[in-house]
């Protein structure tokens, strides 16, 4: 693909991305009065994050066992009140160690 075609593709993608993010934020300034919509939007963050995490987290690395244990670590640490950074780094460490072990010993 030639250079100018790639440039056009990039600008179109940037535009689509920006409009998706910008339009609702700029044009829905007033507080929504409708009770259903209000409640709906309150729950959106949790529903979105959950459906992005599950089931993808179990296949986020090629090793299912490592993913599952890493995810388990994240759930436990978060449950016991650990912060974002601790949770993120600990579960990465678990995935790394398990991944290495599995590769080494060919479970």
């Amino acid at each position: 693909m030639n250079y100018s075609k790639l440039l056009i593709i990039i600008f179109i993608c940037a535009l689509v991305m920006y409009l998706l993010r910008m339009l609702p934020l700029v044009f829905c300034k007033g507080k929504i009065k409708n009770k259903f919509l209000q409640s709906f939007l309150t729950y959106v963050p949790y529903a979105v994050l959950t459906s992005m995490t599950i089931p993808e987290v179990f296949s986020c690395t090629p090793n299912f066992l490592a993913c599952t244990l890493g995810f388990g670590t994240a759930v436990l640490l978060a449950y016991f009140g650990q912060g974002l950074l601790t949770v993120a780094l600990s579960s990465t460490a678990v995935v790394f160690v398990i991944g290495q072990l599995v590769e080494h010993f060919k479970f």
Binding site: C60, A74, V87
Partner: peptide
């Protein structure tokens, strides 16, 4: 291994 970071963050929020 770093592939799990984003999901771990989501978990820490949920």
């Amino acid at each position: 291994a770093m592939g799990i970071i984003v999901y771990a963050m989501f978990t820490a929020i949920i």
